[in-house]
């Protein structure tokens, strides 16, 4: 039986990490909600974010956490042509054509990373990534707390955007009945494009945070995608606050799983939860609480 300090540290670290996981899943969630698209390149968008943070630091010397807005805009802008040239022309051709296209984009991106940045694993090396923070018996890396704070802030901002602004109104209306929204004057294509870009921008920030907390490489996208899918399935589709709760739940359960079964089982817990939720609560734990 590990001592209470280790247990509580692990759980706190899991919850904090879960906040970051929620942010990494947010883009996937809103794109799924509005466009009915499982963006299979979402994990690679996160990797783009991680590389963007890394090179921002290398070229400017400015801390990537300060440069987060730049990274967000950069990744968001990259997503615009993907939407206009690859996804928009497939509108009306069923969900699978768009999903397969994003799968192909994922393959291409992954190979592009290898060609451009080599297959090495890297990390965004900052002091706060390794410095431990101690509060009583609880110890965890400082980056977890910073990442959690940034993630929760951003998720709440997106929640505000979706639930309280005119754009959010258009977004929610387009998600449930695109035809009715269009008849009322909503330019649904534009809403979808902005949603896709917003999702990518969130992925950019989430990717930088992941890159600061952990090592990453050209093929990290697959694992990122699967964790994000687990969060979305746990939290419910297209539900911003649900994504936050789903992320925290996944982070905590992964940590507990890692502690009890061994560190190698962390990700396995996530995948097992994912399939179990699909089997028994396909609408997520928060089926009712839609934003």
């Amino acid at each position: 039986m590990p001592d209470i300090g280790i247990i509580s540290s692990t759980i706190v670290a899991g919850v904090l990490l879960g906040g970051i996981l929620a942010l990494t899943a947010l883009g996937l969630s809103i794109v799924l909600g509005v466009m009915r698209l499982v963006n299979l390149a979402h994990g690679d968008f996160l990797v783009v974010g991680a590389y963007a943070g890394l090179f921002f630091l290398q070229f400017t010397g400015i801390d990537p956490l300060i440069g987060l807005p730049v990274v967000a805009v950069f990744v968001g802008m990259l997503a615009l042509p993907v939407y206009s040239f690859l996804l928009a022309p497939l509108a009306g051709r069923g969900a699978e054509a768009q999903m397969m296209t994003m799968f192909a984009v994922s393959i291409i991106l992954e190979n592009a990373f290898v060609l451009a940045f080599s297959a090495d694993t890297r990390s965004i090396a900052r002091d706060y990534a390794t410095v431990p923070l101690t509060l009583g018996p609880i110890t965890f890396p400082l980056i977890y707390l910073i990442g959690f704070a940034i993630s929760v802030t951003l998720i709440l901002a997106v929640h505000w955007l979706v639930s309280a602004t005119a754009f959010g109104r258009d977004l929610r209306a387009s998600a449930v009945d695109a035809q009715a929204a269009a008849t009322l004057g909503v330019d649904v294509k534009r809403v979808q494009m902005l949603t896709f870009a917003l999702g990518a921008a969130c992925a950019g920030v989430g990717g930088t945070l992941m890159g600061a907390a952990f090592q990453f490489g050209p093929s990290s996208g697959g694992a990122y995608l699967l964790n994000s899918l687990a969060v979305v399935v746990l939290g419910g589709l297209g539900n911003v606050i649900g994504t936050l709760i789903g992320g925290i739940a996944l982070g905590a359960l992964q940590s507990i799983g890692g502690l009890t079964l061994g560190d190698g089982y962390r990700d396995l817990v996530g995948m097992a939860l994912f399939l179990l939720v699909l089997a028994f609560r396909p609408d997520g734990f928060l089926a009712k609480g839609r934003t």
Binding site: R169, D170, R172, V176, D177
Partner: peptide, 21 residues
Amino acid sequence: MEGRRIFPTLSVQENLLIAAR
């Protein structure tokens, strides 16, 4: 539209405001 097509995820007021483009 036929069948009303009210957005269930929007409040009554939001359903109205969305049309005030």
